[in-house]
Structure formats: structure tokens, C-alpha cells
Design a protein around this nucleic acid. Sequence first.
DNA 1: CGCGGGATTGAGCCGAATCAATGCAGGTGG
DNA 2: CCACCTGCATTGATTCGGCTCAATCCCGCG
Lengths: 243, 243
Amino acid sequence: MASHDERCASCAIRHQAICGALSDEELTALNAIAHFRKVRAGQTVMADSEPSSFFGNVLSGAVKLTKMMPDGRQQIVGLLFPSDFLGRAFSPDAPYYAEAASDVELCTFPRTEFERLLKAFPTLEHRLLEHTLDELDASREWMLLLGRKNAEEKVASFLVMIARRARNVGCAGSGNLDFARFALPLSRAETADYLGLTIETVSRQITRLRARGLISLEKGRTFVVPSIRALAQVAEPNGTRLD
Amino acid sequence: MASHDERCASCAIRHQAICGALSDEELTALNAIAHFRKVRAGQTVMADSEPSSFFGNVLSGAVKLTKMMPDGRQQIVGLLFPSDFLGRAFSPDAPYYAEAASDVELCTFPRTEFERLLKAFPTLEHRLLEHTLDELDASREWMLLLGRKNAEEKVASFLVMIARRARNVGCAGSGNLDFARFALPLSRAETADYLGLTIETVSRQITRLRARGLISLEKGRTFVVPSIRALAQVAEPNGTRLD
DNA sequence: CGCGGGATTGAGCCGAATCAATGCAGGTGG
DNA sequence: CCACCTGCATTGATTCGGCTCAATCCCGCG
């Protein structure tokens, strides 16, 4: 029992995750049903066909949520980072397919037990609601990107989003807030599926941004963004032209 | 007080809306803060800049939620029909702009009072969560459309979605379930902004679908879909080729 | 009757997809 | 250690779907 509390106390992402702001009693109950789980990059976390038996918090790594059309076309509809919640409450099967984008650590909860706790503890359900609302906002932001941005803006927006997320994870206050350096958890193919583009177009746009000095690449998937602000300017050009 | 209960009792959309499954006590409290409101087509319901002071249920008509880029490009990120909930809980200003697509009737609740009731009545918050999860599912479905479907599929998907929604409103069991006939609440320009296309492309695809007999138009924005199933086949072609 | 806003249709162009080749690093076996 | 493979990324040439620009058309309305 005491060890349960300790586990949570030392949890790096507790405050942001749905466990944040829970009472001791609630936290203990939640912890009593929690299981640690690792998933290797590329492995399925939950399939959209078979009903998933659990929920979970992402502790480390990244999980991608994808939707697929019968003919194979694919779209990533969500990307989960540490402290994000995984799973579709109140519906046996999620309308998407969840896969580990990198090696992932999860704090999982069996479906039925977790839903029982949701009923028992309104605070927990409240946290889940807040979380869901944030995800809805994010997915609408992405709809704007998918529907109205061109390839260059899409890639820039994507890198800005990742850069900002990565900063939060890599601990705050580490010098320049406008600078970022991170390992992209996605391949080119996955990036393309996230942005509604093809591999080739993503690659071309990255080289163009590199040529303009807005980003640089060091071995593999590690990106350096000298100025997030400048990159964000490309992601969403404002009306003022400066030619 | 008794009149309050009566109003809800006669409400056509109560069961689907967040008011559904509330106890008498809860319903009375909610009703005590409710105000009826009409908004004319084209009018702003809530602006994304100024903090909105209320939430609401859509009683009749359709509300569109749009996002805009600094340079004017626009994307509709949500379309609300009767029984849908309007507003962003726990955040003073919604990250989008809400406008009446047609003449709209709303059942509104002042922000602070409604958030107080959410705290007081977990059942209400639970309903809101279920509703938000559904919207999240829908918006992810739309991400697939925006990112991976071509113009023809987009327009067909859109019409199928509206046709299905319209059937629910127009009362169930009215003969053929595969047939639909409805007045589109959106102009071509709005449809384009919903699908990430231009007016011209939307128009062309509609004429093509008409030529194939999959839809027909009668004066203005009234559509007839003889077979929703056949149209859905165009919206999401399955792998099996039949040439 | 003429006006005006939305919708349709047409001609040409451009950006991203497609098709195809090449590059590059990590891993494996001779 | 090097040759070879394999999976991912880059680059180039070409095509094509949807955008742009522009001309009607349609219909309600003053």
C-alpha cells in the first residue's frame, strides 16, 4: 500500500496526467489496479478491431493513433506523449489503431476496474474530461493544418509542435526557450501519414527548411531548431508581407 | 418550477442532449439557469477572441465552428446539429469561432452557473464527457477525410454524413432507411471550407455525382439521395475492384 | 427590367503525387 | 575487413488532380 503511494510520488508525469490532483484515497485506489507495461517500437498497443481491455498513461516514448481506409490509405489522427492518456472510455473498441512509435512505457489500468473508478471518483472523471477537451482542441487545430496548409507549412507546423512538446519533456528552464533539439519519434513515412503528404514531399520540404537555415539535422532523426519562433512564422504566415 | 420541468419534458432533443439521463433534481437545477435564444443565419454565436459567457444545446438549425489563419484561409472544424452541445468547458475562450449556419434555436446556460452545476452533479459532467468523446471520434474521422481522401470522396462522405444526420432529425422509421432528402444547411463556400476544397471543385464534384445518378438536386440546396449505401461506396471505396 | 449574390462551367497552371533512381547507414556473413 | 543486403531517406523527371482566373448562368428581388 505504502509502496503504491511511493510509486506515484516518484512519477515524473503525475501532475500533468489524469492522476494529478487526486486525493490520497483516490490515488491509492487507482494505483491498486495499475500495471506497468513496456511496448517495443512498432508493436501494436491496441487494435481497432478487437475490444481493448485496458487504458493507460504514457510514461515515456510516443504512441501513434492511426486510421486506415479499406484500400490501405492511412492517416495518423493522434500522437501521444508522456502524461497523455490512452484509450477510449465507455466504448469497448477504440475507433483507431494504436501503435508504439518508439519504445514505450505505460502505466495501464484494466478497463472494467478503471471505469468503475470513474464512476466512484468524480475528480478522476473530471480530469479525464479536461484531458479529452484538450485533445479535441488539438485535433481541430490539426484539421486546419490538413485542410488548409500547404506542404511547407505542414512540415514546419509539425516540427514546431514536436519542438514545443519536447521542450516540456526535457525539463523546463534549460537556457534558451526559443531553441530546441530533439529526436523525432516518427519515420518519414509516419510523418507523411500524420501530415496528409507523401514521403517524398516531406523529405523535400525538410531539405528546403534546412537550406534556409531554419532547421538542421544531425545523424538520423535528431533535429535542431535554432529559433522555434522563426519556424512558427513559416508554419502560419501572417498577412504582413515583408518583401 | 413546474413549468421548468414541463419545458424539458416536451423537449424533442432531450434524450440525446447532455440533459438526458439526469435526475429530476438535476434537471430542475439545470433548467433554472436555462435561457432560450434564437440566432439568425450568418450571425456570430461566439467569437474566438472575446471570452464567451455561455454554453448551450442546439435545439434546431445548425452551428458551424470555424478556424481561420491570419491570412484568411479558413477551415470548418465542427458542425453542430440539434442535441449537440456548444461551448468549451473550463476555458474562458473557445479556440474557434461559432456561427449560425442556418437560423438556430439554442437552450443556453450562463458559463459560471453551468460550471458550478458540473461540479455539483457528476452525472452532468459524465454526459458532457460522453459527448466530448463522440466529438473527438468524429473529428478524427474528419482528419482521415481531410488528409487522405480525394475531392470526389470528400464530397460523397460529406453528403452521406449529412444524409444520416438528417434522417435522425426527421424522425425515424419513415419508410426506406437507405433513402434521404434534406436541405443542406451550408453554402458551397462553407462546404468547401469544411472539406478543405474550393467552391469550384465542390460544385464540379456535385455535378459529377448528379450525372452518375447518385444524387439529385431540387431547387436550391435540397438534395435527394436515392441510396445512401451506394453513395457511401463512393465515399470510401473498398479494395475490391469490379472492372 | 436590371441588379447582385451564389452556383456552375471552362481554360490553363501549379503544387504535390507518382514513378524511378540513387544515396546512405547499420547489420550480417564470407 | 570488406562485400552485400536491407530499410529508410533523398533527389530527379514526369504526371495529374485540384486551384486559379474568368466567363456565364440562375434566381430572387427591388
